[in-house]
Design a protein around this nucleic acid. Structure first.
Lengths: 135, 135
DNA sequence: TCGTGGATTTCCGTTTACGTCAACGGAAGT
DNA sequence: ACTTCCGTTGACGTAAACGGAAATCCACGA
């Protein structure tokens, strides 16, 4: 009975490094560039649930080849809470721009996928020819 | 009447730089790492139609965030012309592995897309609220 | 009080994918 | 012959995204 109170609201850095399989250096780097802003107790970092969500989003973006500034933009979109109409317009515009970009990206990936699958079926046919001839 | 014969079989480097909007350095770099192997006339590079196809594929891969070694792998798959059954198996395996990886990538992109679109509709609703209240 | 283990800061190193000179070459027009 | 215009080969520079080592800090238990 020492810290069970307030139900694990925060996480230390090493907990997250093992959970997400990244290094502490990486988390500190994300902080350096402004992607994360964990609380401090003394000089020790404590990450909130929101931070964890953001980490998940960042890593997904990285897997997909996005750069950190680009990921920052997308996080900004999620965070946006505009009250004025003009600001709302702006956020909607940027969101739809990103959407279109991602749609294009999906289409290009689907092209590659189709080509790979066609390749695969060609090779399978060829394999069938060979093995039948070899009997 | 000086070079119309054999119908523009090859391209010089600057033709390609303007066509694909990349620098000569980039093309030479792709050659350094083995992605391209243009012919030489003297020490001047001449790119074939096949080279142009590869350049297109390379640039598409780059847009999608793939690294050059990864692009090399995919080009190797397209180039593969295996005759032995074991080699065929290998190519098929690698091709299907890449396919699965790309499918996963597409799914993650679709998640992002869905989130962005949801965000957009939320913002549009909010905008509608505001503007109607302001009349 | 000491040490020990974990966290932090600082700073230099590394990889990838080119950018950017510098120096030179060869063909083409004049 | 001279300039002009690509083109070439080094060789070094650079931005992004961390890696890794060294030195420091610091709470906690024996």
């Amino acid at each position: 009975m020492e810290e069970e109170a307030s139900a694990n609201e925060f996480w230390e850095i090493t907990e997250l490094t093992s959970e997400f399989d990244i290094t502490a250096r990486t988390l500190r780097h994300y902080e350096e560039v402004g992607l994360l802003t964990p609380r401090r107790v003394g000089n020790q970092r404590l990450y909130s649930a929101r931070d964890r969500v953001r980490i998940r989003l960042i890593l997904r973006g990285r897997r997909l080849g996005f750069g950190l500034p680009e990921i920052q933009e997308m996080l900004d979109l999620y965070d946006a809470d505009p009250t004025e109409a003009t600001q709302l317009h702006e956020v909607i515009e940027r969101g739809e721009a990103k959407s279109q970009q991602i749609e294009a990206q999906i289409e290009e990936l689907q092209e590659i996928l189709a080509e790979l699958q066609e390749l695969s079926t060609r090779m399978k046919h060829r394999l069938a020819m060979i093995t039948s001839r070899e009997e």
